[in-house]
Design a protein around this nucleic acid. Structure first.
Length: 113
RNA sequence: CGAGUACACUGGGCAGUUGCGGGUCUCUUAUGAGACGUGAGGAAAGUCCGGGCUUCACACAGCAGGGUAACGGCUAACGGCCGCCGAGGGUGACCUUAGGGAAAGUGCAACAGAAAUAAACCGCCGCUUUUGCGGUAAGGAUGGAAAGGCGAGGUAAGAGCUCACCGGCAUAAAGGAGACUUUAUGGCCAUGUAAACCCUACCCGAAGCAACACCGACAGGAUAUAAUGCGCCAGCUGGGCGCCAAACCGACAGGUGGCUUGAACUGCGGAGCAAUCCGCCGUCUGGAUAGAUGACUGCCUUAAAUGACAGAACCCGGCUUACAGGUGUACUCAUUUU
RNA sequence: AGGGAUGUCGUCAAGCGGUAAGACACAACACUUUGACUGUUGCAUUCGUAGGUUCGAAUCCUGCCAUCCCUG
């Protein structure tokens, strides 16, 4: 079981966007960067482009369920800052579809074997 | 059966696996584990009104500014709601309505038309006579609006000049809680616009939970020497209060409280046409702080369940806007049958 | 949470109740061997949208919609 904290500072988000590796799928976008904090940190971005508050909350919850499922099965190679960005299609998908896309993204980035 | 009107309700349910926030209890211990129970709406939305609460003189005055506008009631309050009156619409159930004042004053009314708030272009009549004077507002084209409408009498021609009916205004009486309604009498008058300025009546102190209070850390600034100073209450004028280095102001960025028992909700009874109010019994029913209430699967109901609109951020009362589908109650119209 | 502004042709815009200026662009014609320049002509199913006030509304009032900005 991978332990993690939530990423909540704007400077951390900006650093990850600028320096991190990224991988994009129609379902979502993943940014990833190694950190020296000693624990993994996860952030989610849902912009106003996604829709109203209900649709943004739905996207956030699906993504959270997906990475919780992944962290219970796999473990990361090190400590990373990971940001998941929701896209317009995200709110129509199931969490299992998101999980597949997320896994392939994380492999592409190199965080998971 | 069809077409409608008004009001109210609903907005999938159950089970399993696996997660999250708050609370209570227990055990460990100084952050973990376990158990129990709980966790978004009718609009939580828009932020258009009103109030509570907090701070500013336990909070003041005048002006300025803003708001509301038939009448009676309800309410903590309201620009809200209920009832009712007037006006308008609909065959009807019913719906809509910013609905005070135009004889306090000012402004505006383009174009057209003779003339637009003030009389005379054509016309009609009389007298003069060959172009004028006087009377008149019946008729004429324009316009949203042309000096109440229409008919009769009357007249030189006409005219509310007189009369009947209708409409409007004033006075009186009756009914009503009142707006108002009805009846009688009178004279014939007064263009429209106040969602133009304005007048009248009533109401409004300001700012907002990022308020505010406390704790800890960081760390700067200016002025005066007891008032003719500085600061505070949106604008102006008053007026008031606080203050002397252990004070004042500004900036930075953490934690705790504020935080959910409330004009609360369920049920029963009573008052009232209703909005609403009163009494009794019972219940505790979100409180996050980058933000919880989720994900997946199966079964059932269904036309459809992946499929209405939509996510609390201090809290209430309204208004407005969005909303797939479904349900109930009362009523109206039309057709057919009895 | 509080406050403010704007919406007019494809674009930029004027218009303080009387029927929508102007510029660029676009289209047609003329000029030219052809093009550019230049000239002439044309181009607003109604001023974001739905109602209301008024004889008359882009303008006044009210409710929505969209966009932008400010304060903490």
């Amino acid at each position: 079981m991978q332990k993690y904290l939530s990423l909540n500072q704007n400077t951390d988000f900006q650093r990850t966007y600028h320096r991190g590796k990224s991988s994009a799928k129609p379902a979502l976008v993943v940014y990833c960067l190694k950190n020296r904090v000693g624990i993994c940190r996860v952030g989610i971005t849902t912009s106003k482009k996604i829709g109203n508050a209900v649709q943004r909350n739905r996207s956030r919850r699906i993504i959270r369920a997906a990475y919780q499922s992944i962290f219970s099965k796999y473990s990361l190679k090190g400590n990373y800052d990971i940001i998941f960005v929701a896209r317009t299609k995200t709110k129509y998908l199931k969490s299992t579809d998101i999980e597949k896309a997320m896994l392939s993204c994380l492999k592409e980035v190199g965080a998971i074997e």
